[in-house]
């Protein structure tokens, strides 16, 4: 289970998160061909229907598109990838801030911590 899917959240959502991360990080490069549903399902050890659902949803969001005969491709629209990066980064930042607040740290302390550790 290299994809580290957790059974208490919907699997297709986790697949999307995993692939979105790969798109932003460049592991799946812009314009690259996406492996077939079956290959991906097998790699992630999930049901092909679940994989299909995740890919369709990513298509709907413009992160990939289908060519009728040749398969699915990652978007080559840089602005789409940039806005995906922003939204993932924002989500992570919010989660981080929430955790730091729970530890009782104020804004200045958190900023200092980030600067020191970056």
């Amino acid at each position: 289970m290299s994809w580290n899917l957790n059974s208490d959240r919907p699997i297709f959502v986790q697949i999307m998160e995993h692939m979105e991360y790969d798109i932003v990080s460049g592991a799946l490069s812009p314009g690259a061909k996406v492996p077939s549903v079956r290959e991906l399902a097998s790699a992630a050890a999930v049901n092909p229907n679940t994989m299909q659902r995740a890919l369709s949803e990513m298509e709907r969001r413009g992160l990939m598109h289908s060519e009728r005969t040749s398969g699915r491709y990652i978007t080559d629209d840089e602005s789409v990838i940039a806005s995906l990066r922003d939204s993932i980064a924002n989500g992570r930042a919010e989660a981080f801030i929430t955790q730091m607040k729970r530890l009782g740290l104020g804004k200045d302390e958190v900023l200092k911590l980030v600067k020191e550790n970056y």
């Binding site: 957790n6 059974s7 208490d8 959240r9 919907p10 699997i11 297709f12 959502v13 679940t50």
Partner: peptide, 11 residues
């Protein structure tokens, strides 16, 4: 199964 996970938040 994904209904269970999203509606009940558990496996």
């Amino acid at each position: 199964v994904d209904e269970i996970r999203s509606n009940e938040g558990k496996s």
